[in-house]
Amino acid sequence: MEYIVIIIGAVFVNNIVLAQFLGICPYLGVSAKVSTSVGMSGAVMFVMTLATIVTFLIYNYILIPFDITYLQTISYILVVASLVQMVEIILKKVSPALYQALGIFLPLIVTNCAILGVTILAVREDYGFHLLEAVVFAIGNALGFALTIVLFAGIREHLDLMDVPKGMRGAPAALVVAGILALAFMGFANLV
């Protein structure tokens, strides 16, 4: 039950993109086609879950015992960056098919603030998560990212065919559409 609440909260109520404003760059950058947005979502889910496990352990078993939590930002970003590199190398060797699907998105993920944001949120003391809850939290947020970016890509594919006023073409129209989506997601506010 607890886990379901965490997932629903992360996907609908505090949606990572539309309510927390994390991962906006890939949200606007790779949402032109549904197929690429699905690939990006897969890569995000993979890295977000792994990164949360690793950083959670580092935070609780290295940073806290040695009282060096001020190194959180620096150690987290290094973990995310090297993890992405490692995943890329391993995928290439182990599963060329998966690498084909996710490969080009992996380097982009290092600067995806959704990853770093979720890893930092997962150890925030007021959630008091233990490891499994943190993992569920990461998966929930990744699902939330996937849902919004795929939805958004679907809308954008139609938007390209529309007669949008000249000044609003491209990014401005996409941002306004994102705003309307955010408005729609506010309807989920009382879900949990």
Binding site: L18, A19, F21, G167, M168, A171, P172, A173, A174, L175, V176, A178, G179, I180, A182, L183, M186
Partner: peptide, 17 residues
Amino acid sequence: LAPGAFIGLGYLVALNN
């Protein structure tokens, strides 16, 4: 609220264009 951020930015980008 969140939607206003997206919409406000959208119009500012258009204006800057």
